[in-house]
Design a protein around this nucleic acid. Sequence first.
DNA 1: CCAAACACCCAAAGCGCTTTGGCATGCCTT
DNA 2: AAGGCATGCCAAAGCGCTTTGGGTGTTTGG
Lengths: 343, 343
Amino acid sequence: MNLKQLSELLGLSQTTVSRALNGYPEVSEKTRKKVEAAAKQHNYTPNTRARGLATGRNHAVGHVIPLSTEHEVVNPVFTDFIAGASEVYSRENYDMHLTVVPDASESDAYRKIAAKGSVDGVIVHGPKENDPRIKLLREIGMPFVVHGRSGSTDEQEYSWVDMNNTRAFERATQFLLDLGHRRIGLLNGLETMDFAAKRRIGYRTALEQAGVTEDNTLCYSSEMTEEYGFSATTKMLALEHPPTALLASSIIVGFGVRRALDAADLKIGKDVSLIIHDDDLSYLRNGNSEPIYTATRSSVRQAGRICAEILMDMIVNPTRPAQHVLLDAELIIGHTTGPAPQG
Amino acid sequence: MNLKQLSELLGLSQTTVSRALNGYPEVSEKTRKKVEAAAKQHNYTPNTRARGLATGRNHAVGHVIPLSTEHEVVNPVFTDFIAGASEVYSRENYDMHLTVVPDASESDAYRKIAAKGSVDGVIVHGPKENDPRIKLLREIGMPFVVHGRSGSTDEQEYSWVDMNNTRAFERATQFLLDLGHRRIGLLNGLETMDFAAKRRIGYRTALEQAGVTEDNTLCYSSEMTEEYGFSATTKMLALEHPPTALLASSIIVGFGVRRALDAADLKIGKDVSLIIHDDDLSYLRNGNSEPIYTATRSSVRQAGRICAEILMDMIVNPTRPAQHVLLDAELIIGHTTGPAPQG
DNA sequence: CCAAACACCCAAAGCGCTTTGGCATGCCTT
DNA sequence: AAGGCATGCCAAAGCGCTTTGGGTGTTTGG
């Protein structure tokens, strides 16, 4: 069913039917009701392409999700981020276009998306420090919001939604220091990523304030897999002075840590303490009523919702200045931390 | 840059430029080269909406991913499935449209997608037994391929890509029986889902063949979360005759099993054996060179690739009969299984 | 009572592309 | 030399929608 058919059916012009459905005032309430009823009855929805062509607006946004070239890994937080964003899109009747690209060719992907002209805006995932995509998108003039921030790039110049990575890891480290831990290992994400760089800074700051010198043999940085958690932990445990506490950048890394401690017959939370960062993923809940892991927690899904809302707003209202949301992670106490063992 | 501008720039008609770029023979090699060079130089890509309107084809496919209403969980296998499918889409220059919907309103979502007419085909995720979506899509006449199958619906009537769930779980159960285990717990996915129902059948078949009667207190069915793995295992361990082996429907459930065994001071692979199903997710690899968990393994990413390829084919060639691919899961031996303890 | 204002509707143009149906031009036949 | 046939190009229509710029009939105000 298309507009022409529907209008013929109703004995009205296409103009009138279109206006009726789009809420224009130049149409009587009576005809509007009639039109709406007929539209629903015949399951009429305006053809997206045609509407897009006519209006210049697509009612669609793009997500480009990077495929880590190193290990071909798609970060699992995307599912939840996208679930959050989708809530907003479906409420506003927007479509979501997804592109998965090797992160090397990401800039090209954005250029192509812009040229194809099928979306009104994009969300930038996984920003690195001084990420070239931000400059590119500004040049192109495509509305965008960044999930995270991009280091040295001026933060005022673009919209972003981020969590306070620095603060979160500073607090977590502080918490471990307060428990008496002095040798604290860090299993960070790839430090080319902005979030990981910021977490490293938080970690370092807390150590410095406590007068503990950072030890490079306790600092790891990699793609956040279970295997990484296992192998990095195993290596650290083999050190002459192994860590008594660990900070893991995700719950999945935390699973690997657990397995390594298990294999070494060390009790988690007693022999070795562990704090993870918990993105509050729906399928990887850190306990139900009570948290399992002590964690810094911030909902990625919520971040998705906020990003989407800001983007919608920017699309409708392009002149409004850039918006920034800094979410604070909460520190929640689970069963994986305890006082540093004496020795 | 649009067609008109490009053609004026080249001093050619829009027709010729369009034909040149789309590989039609009615244009000389010389002009074609010139046009292609200019297109590349000015980063010209035909506007998707306009092209779609003109051709009636969208160069886009839709994925509707269900949001489990029960726990608002998005199944994490989607990231990898989508990564696999995307490889194909980007090779063929197709776009991917994503819709996340509460699984209750899925049928409506498909109807709406069809009415909007912005995709050429869809992939159906998470089929249930006798899933109404299949009938719906056939009625609408939208090309689709199902990831999985739908129980009693005639399998010949639609295209699907599935793994051999029954066989995989039969073999895994068989393997445990051969090791002397008699009390084998099953931590299945939601058995309203076709894949879980089939796994249950495989489990049952193997038990029957060994003359072991199925024990309902050893059979769980739920959303596949870590917490579920933990709590179901904990409950089973509290039984008078606890299981000596467990079958878990995903690696994440397996993580929960590990934690529960850990808490009960039971050695995995010695006191209690565990086999998981491994979707070979990029961020949840079951070990690198050597598997950690004994597992039935089948790559979801590969399934994504195959689904996408079949769908592309169906779009281009609508008269071809339905295609079916049944992937076999391999049984890989890790460190989590061993002979049943005596006693 | 007439003009102005209003309410309601419509025809047609245009969004950027593909595609149909020509129209020249040059070359080869007969 | 005239007809036939590729070859290479183009003008214009049309995809389904929104939107501009009227048009018609009915109220309202002076």
